[in-house]
């Protein structure tokens, strides 16, 4: 196999990054990036490539060699002609697609897990500093297994009477109302959610719902209800136990969070 020239390598790298952003993230992962973001990444890659090839004179010459050859070397006549047809053609198509696409809707940037307030409350009642409050029934897991089971079972009831429309039967965020919501309901089977937060964090999220979020988390878009209007404190702690028992994920504890 002939050795690839530096120039070809750079072109391949650039194309690979573009394909990855456009089709892998957009297509396979289905989170299409706005054109401006893709443009930004590609700009960065271009700068990086240019910096890389221009730090040494030799390397820069090596980089430019194929370009010079194509343009000036008479032996490369056909290649030169192809270039002269191809470049204007690509530019033509590219500009045409640019000027005929319509403005894209502004992409909403949203922090899904904002920092909670310092104090945990239920209605007007102050429960305590959010870092320190623990689930008052968690200790039963060791002390009284049956009582703990009963709380988990009560949590199950709470969940299936109130939450599954959105968060889904299997706690995977795919309830029968999920398709009409944006942002989507949280997927508790996602290993990035339950293990990363303390139970008090979930208490805050459940009791204050979407409207309780700070502006960085777009509280005006979230359909998550304010559950302190419907559920007792105990029911909220119970449903948190159910979320962790059903999925098998353990929320963080205070000690871990401090690390």
């Amino acid at each position: 196999m002939p050795k690839l020239s530096l120039f070809t390598k750079c072109v391949i790298l650039f194309a690979a990054v573009w394909l990855f952003l456009e089709f892998f993230i957009g297509g396979v992962w289905s989170v299409p990036l706005p054109a401006s973001v893709i443009g930004m990444y590609l700009g960065l890659i271009l700068v990086a490539i240019l910096v890389h090839v221009s730090v040494e004179d030799d390397r820069f010459r090596e980089f430019l060699r194929p370009i010079k050859e194509t343009l000036a070397d008479d032996k490369r006549r056909t290649r030169c002609t192809v270039l002269f047809v191809l470049v204007p053609l690509v530019m033509l198509v590219f500009t045409f697609s640019k000027v005929s696409t319509k403005a894209e809707a502004p992409a909403s940037v949203r922090i899904a897990h904002p920092a909670p307030p310092d104090e945990l409350t239920y209605g007007d009642k102050v429960i305590g500093p959010i870092q320190e409050v623990e689930n008052p029934f968690r200790h039963l897991e060791k002390d009284d297994k049956d009582a703990f089971r009963a709380h988990a079972e009560n949590g199950r009831r709470v969940y299936y009477q109130n939450c599954f429309y959105c968060h889904g039967d299997d706690l995977d965020g795919e309830g029968h109302f999920a398709h009409g919501l944006n942002p989507l309901p949280a997927n508790f089977q996602d290993p990035g959610i339950i293990p990363n937060f303390q139970e008090s964090f979930f208490f805050w999220r459940i009791s204050k719902g979407g409207p309780g979020l700070p502006p960085s988390a777009t509280p005006w878009d979230s359909a998550m209800p304010v559950w302190e209007d419907y559920l007792t404190e105990e029911e909220i702690w119970d449903v948190i136990i159910f979320l962790s028992e059903y999925t098998g994920y353990k929320p963080r504890t205070f000690g871990e969070a401090a690390h």
Partner: peptide, 28 residues
């Protein structure tokens, strides 16, 4: 429903027939 967007699309102009050839010529 949740929030969606509404927009008045730009008034169509001839720029899509003018710009691309110009850009192609310039690049040539």
């Amino acid at each position: 429903s949740t929030w969606y967007s509404f927009v008045l699309d730009p008034v169509p102009s001839n720029k899509r027939f003018v710009y691309p050839p110009v850009v192609a010529l310039i690049s040539a």
